[in-house]
Write a protein that binds this DNA or RNA. Structure first.
Lengths: 261, 261
DNA sequence: CGGTATTTTGAGTATCGTCAAGGCCAGTGG
DNA sequence: CCACTGGCCTTGACGATACTCAAAATACCG
């Protein structure tokens, strides 16, 4: 359903929209119109994409890589409030300025549409309008999933929930091919300090929690930013296993211990 | 057992849409069309409105009172992920089932539109379409504000941030008239257990933090669910004062204009 | 007025935040 | 090629905070 087809298309331009699920279902006409008002921009890790307070002149869609959304506090510190991955949009269609900064967390490619023509196109194309709305709905759900992650009382639990999120929602983006067998690998796209703020903790505590999980055999720390997932089931248990169904699906091909209450 | 109960069909038709900001700007024609497919339902505190997993047959808008959005875990415990107040919509227009339960936190009035005709109307009326989209954008922002609240490392800070939210975003809804001078009163619409889960803590810790704030003179605990705000500025400081501007507005004098998404 | 649920308090322990130091890695310059 | 430097991650120690368990006090409801 969500498969993007490797386009056997003649023009290079036509490929610009490819790979983004939500655009795949659009009509030929709408896609062509989008094509005309878009451009691809590449960002290096750490580079700013949009700043809070300014009404972005374009609506963006992540094509590759990971962007982080953050609020800059008055004292200069930054507070991450979410990550944007392939297919996520930003830029407040029809609305005022953004309330958050957006920066590239990894090298990233952004597909950007000039605001005015994009809004006009949305008004004119019901299918695009609907795609935008569904995208918002999806982001809303994910923001609420974040809340559940953050509502975990212990750092270990929040970290486990976060890793779980990386394995499920961001599957195929943050995760990498397994090394032969069934071992799943996850790349953490942000540093310890940022991760700590995201999880409402401190870098030291995050590090300790991470190593505690490793000591208990739930994960392997291959590199500081690269983890191997050993037991997804135990991880889910640690996180409070809110959605046991989805985990079960993932664990299906893994020798995870199933101990549902 | 909570059961959904259809409310009385609207008879005072003309006034049904009144009082909800986002509908005020709609065209006469759209409002009339909405009028025809809506009904008002009243819920008692604790009563269920929609259950997760089912595609709601209604798109709802809160008219009065407070609803809570929650995820029911496999073990029966519930996890609150947000509160809905006047003007907030729920029901995933154009999309599948809800992922959360919705229950009345206080006695509430919900304006509900039958899904099919509502979606048809949205497709037909650009102004309504845009109102729905702006509403989603606003909810997304508030969900992210929640994340910042929850990312506070200490319970005191999270609690202070939560109270601040009640004073700003839910102003006039959770807040009550001041008793004479500058003292603001806030009603907490959920019990300690729910509040604790919402803030990623335990009822005991929430109670202690609350009384600690009271001992330090930031608030008064009039009843377990009714607080008097003594010093908004100190509260903001406690919370980490992310948005000092808005606080300054409130701390000075009102009336604060409703913050637009 | 009694019964129940919720909130609060208390004591003990685990966890976490804080401060400070040490280690690892990459890039830089001798 | 190697020492040096700076950033990030990790570790250690200690004090503060928060969770757990248990019990008492209070509010709520009929």
């Amino acid at each position: 359903m969500l498969e993007d087809r490797p386009g056997s298309l003649g023009s290079a331009d036509i490929c610009m929209l490819s790979g983004i699920p939500q655009f795949a279902a659009l009509s030929e006409e709408t896609r062509n119109a989008l094509q005309r008002i878009c451009q691809v921009t590449r960002y290096a890790a750490g580079q700013g994409v949009v700043h809070a307070g300014e009404t972005a002149e374009f609506i963006g869609t992540v094509r590759a890589g990971i962007l982080r959304m953050q609020k800059t506090l008055h004292d200069g510190r930054q507070h991450i409030v979410g990550l944007l991955v392939k297919g996520d949009m930003f830029g407040r269609v029809f609305d005022g300025p953004l309330h958050f900064d957006i920066e590239a967390a990894t090298p990233a490619e952004v597909l950007s549409f000039r605001r005015a023509p994009f809004e006009a196109l949305v008004s004119r194309s019901p299918d695009l309008d609907r795609a935008v709305m569904l995208n918002l709905l999806g982001e809303l759900d994910r923001a609420r999933d974040w809340m559940i992650v953050l509502a975990n009382p212990r750092v270990r639990g929040r970290l486990a929930a976060f890793l779980l999120m990386l394995c499920t929602r961001l599957r195929g983006i943050a995760t990498q091919a397994t090394d032969g067998a069934d071992r799943l690998q996850v790349r953490i796209p942000i540093g310890r300090a940022d991760l700590a703020q995201l999880l409402g903790s401190r870098p030291e505590s995050v590090s300790r929690a991470l190593h505690a999980l490793a000591d208990d055999g739930l994960i392997d720390i291959i590199r500081p930013d690269l983890l191997g997932i050993r037991d997804l089931g135990l991880l889910a248990e640690e996180a409070g296993e809110h959605d046991s169904e989805e985990i079960a699906l993932l664990s299906g091909r893994l020798p995870a211990t199933r101990r549902l209450g």
